[in-house]
Design a protein around this nucleic acid. Structure first.
Lengths: 132, 132
DNA sequence: CTGACTGCAAACGTTTTGCACGGTA
DNA sequence: TACCGTGCAAAACGTTTGCAGTCAG
């Protein structure tokens, strides 16, 4: 994947720091602020937390990234992709994406509540294959 | 509902401040820290934010309350009840509870992911009857 | 009467801001 | 070259802690 191009298409300069954040997220799927910070310290020993925060926010603002708020855990960030659900292992904290057809649920919810629904956040937690 | 009794059953003293937090949550359903703080200032002009935080945490610890982490919003707190989903209005911020049968989704997720699943957090957002 | 709770003030960790410098386009 | 992005330091913010006094049981 050409992240340099992708960043430029979003009017963001492809600085080495920013590019590495994106690559780390592509590689790891979901990382919290501290994990991103630590992941960049090898390549950029003088990287600043402020830089991480600023980058995360500019990329959130243009929906290049998504924030995932997980019950009882720190928020993690992921590259934006189609809507999907998340499963979190309570023991090892592994997070996996899963595609579920939630449209029947949405339909039902919209009927009962009389809301016009746009988005959904579905997060399961349990124990992964290794931890269970 | 006799919240005094309910608090005592949970080994918590029924102080006026604590009781009022519970009553406000019973009345409003879902409130964030600031809203609780403001709601108590009428009755207790010298109420401290520390008191709110301490109470919320003691009541979370014994699962007398639940925290609901909502995407792009502050966390809100609710009295503990059976597992249910939430719908949030993006415009007026109203939050409503909804009972949906998510067991087919859980089953599917568990099959695909090979996780043993315990809990789920399902939050929809859209526009409520008045805002849409 | 005793331990739990409150309110205040200080401390803490996280996130944001301002600014001078440096690097991308 | 122009401007965006970085890194540092300081500030702001939300939350937690310690403590002395108070209150519920």
């Amino acid at each position: 994947m050409d992240y340099i191009k992708l960043l430029k298409e979003n009017n963001l300069k492809a600085t080495p720091q920013r590019l590495t954040i994106v690559e780390e997220l592509a590689l790891n799927g979901h990382l919290n602020i501290d994990q991103i910070y630590k992941a960049l310290q090898d390549k950029f020993p003088s990287i600043s937390l402020a830089t991480i925060y600023k980058n995360i926010h500019t990329m959130l603002d243009i929906s290049f990234l998504n924030e995932v708020k997980i019950p009882n855990k720190k928020s993690v960030y992921e590259l934006h992709k189609e809507e999907h659900s998340h499963i979190v292992c309570s023991k090892c904290n592994m997070i996996v994406d899963i595609n579920l057809d939630i449209s029947p649920l949405l339909k039902e919810a919209s009927k009962i509540s009389d809301f016009k629904l746009f988005e959904s956040s579905v997060i399961f937690n349990g124990l992964c294959h290794n931890c269970k």
